[in-house]
């Protein structure tokens, strides 16, 4: 779930971690009442500051994706279907934004990227 967490990215690590968990909840990889790894275990596994994991969990709790139960751990909440769809759409949007930025840096315009995208997924572009 956390492969490719990138400390060099301008996106803060806690946001990257929270985004992965949100996506896992949205796609059903994490089910309601599933326990998230403890702060200590996850910090250790990702080799990040425990405060970073706490921050990620807190943000998820504020969004209603998880519940932090004192002394027991952090558990996935029931998230309404529309909210999960929104989350998936938001993540897709972010990926595309990054693609467009990366493309612009090497001089590719949106049209060229769109064509490449359609070639890659095998869908005809309608004009």
């Amino acid at each position: 779930m956390f492969s490719g967490i990138d400390p060099r990215s301008p996106t803060p690590l806690y946001e990257q971690i929270a985004a992965r968990i949100r996506l896992a909840v949205a796609s059903g990889d994490l089910r309601p009442a599933d326990a998230l790894p403890s702060v200590r275990v996850l910090a250790r596994e990702l080799r990040v500051n425990p405060a970073t994991v706490v921050q990620a969990y807190r943000d998820l709790a504020v969004d209603g994706f998880v519940e932090m139960r004192h002394g027991q751990g952090t558990f996935v909440q029931e998230v309404p279907t529309f909210r999960r769809a929104e989350e998936r759409a938001a993540q897709a949007q972010k990926l595309v934004q990054k693609l467009i930025e990366d493309g612009a840096r090497i001089g590719l315009v949106a049209d060229e990227l769109a064509r490449a995208f359609h070639t890659e997924v095998g869908v005809e572009i309608s004009e």
Binding site: V39, R40, R44
Partner: peptide, 9 residues
């Protein structure tokens, strides 16, 4: 580094 992070946690 892992030992340090464990302790901090």
């Amino acid at each position: 580094l892992t030992a340090v992070l464990d302790y901090v946690a």
